[in-house]
Nucleic acid binder design. Structure first.
Lengths: 196, 196
DNA sequence: CCACTGAAGCTAACGTGATTAGCTAAAGGC
DNA sequence: GCCTTTAGCTAATCACGTTAGCTTCAGTGG
């Protein structure tokens, strides 16, 4: 084997860094090649297509996010775990908006797509965190989806510059976490069913 | 003036319909032209670029969503208004995923961009709805952002096929609305501040 | 009623960015 | 010190957005 300057992994890593700088939509093979000091067609010796590259970034992102969230929750429980996990996720998205966008743009390509276990690890962390609140077993799935919705929604709105007013976005996020925490501790939906 | 078969408005409307079918990312001038029974370059007599077309779709979507949400909230208050507004928004996104994606992909192009008043109308509806809960004035902004986050997050996750498990997504959504409603009625964050 | 104008739509052409084909040369095994 | 393997290169192709310039018809003014 010759030079081996680039590898699929190093190309993916560079692409992930690039995408965090210029935005996922502005990823191009030409720009990436330039960053790597190589001509565009050379990249195809390491990745089969731009779509595959984007998918690799997505897997990387999901894996990294999974690590970061797991580590944040590690050793905490209940409200502490929620706050730490949520903050960890928000921080990750703020630092890696391009990767996060890549992860959201991707769909599993098949049953053995590594993206699947990577996302399952994230879900498992959230599930572990939620187990610190005593929810009805039947409600866990709904709590999980609600949690994912708020965190994902906040992160994407923030990344898109959706929060205009000058009120502190940090403050809004801690308020949001608090809101969720109190709702989970209250054992929601035990009674009224407003939403019909 | 000659034939006038197409107009900027009719092209935009067709593009919006197309995008709901094939997905925002798969919008192409060629595909749209084909749908309209016209050759690609002819479209440029009505829109200046694909970017502008996407922006027009976004404005249309935001306007339609604003109407639908306002109408749903109309005549209701408190929990009823929340439930109706949230359901209306979710329904809109389910029926018009491409338009919604367009709206999320757009950034205001300037101070007189019609997208701005269109989104403000949506925010105004949510604000009107929230006024039915008696929140601290200082908390309204946080409640608004939390609300936007959950609804946007749920809608995008659902549109992306993010809810895999076979548990009813409808049920999760009503659970979510209930969760928010109860939190808002409880007058959150009055005490503990978990999230540091 | 008819020449005139203006814009809709067309064909041809261009530019950019992804991708492929085929060549070259250097690295590691023998 | 050869020989194979393959990273990277140049040249070419393809798809798609976009532009240039021509053609034709709808409506207007005489």
């Amino acid at each position: 084997m010759p030079k081996a300057r680039l590898t699929p992994a190093s190309v993916t890593e560079a692409a992930a860094a690039l995408v965090d700088e210029v935005g996922f939509d502005n990823l191009s093979m030409g720009l990436l090649a330039e960053r790597l000091g190589v001509k565009t067609p050379s990249l195809y010796k390491h990745v089969t297509s731009q779509a595959e590259l984007a998918h690799r970034i997505a897997v990387l992102a999901m894996t990294e996010a999974g690590d970061v969230i797991r580590d944040a929750i590690q050793g905490r429980s209940g409200s502490d775990a929620l706050a730490a996990g949520a903050q960890a996720m928000r921080t990750y998205v703020r630092e890696h908006p391009g990767r996060y966008a890549a992860a959201n743009a991707t769909r599993p390509t098949g049953p053995d797509d590594p993206f699947i276990p990577a996302s399952e690890r994230v879900l498992a962390s959230w599930a572990a965190m939620l187990s610190g609140y005593d929810l009805d077993p039947g409600q866990e799935i709904h709590a999980m989806r609600t949690l994912r919705s708020v965190l994902h929604g906040f992160a994407t709105l923030e990344a898109a510059g959706g929060f205009q007013i000058d009120a502190s976005v940090d403050e809004s996020f801690t308020w949001l976490i608090n809101f969720i925490d109190q709702g989970l501790r209250a054992g929601v939906a035990s009674g009224s069913d407003v939403a019909r």
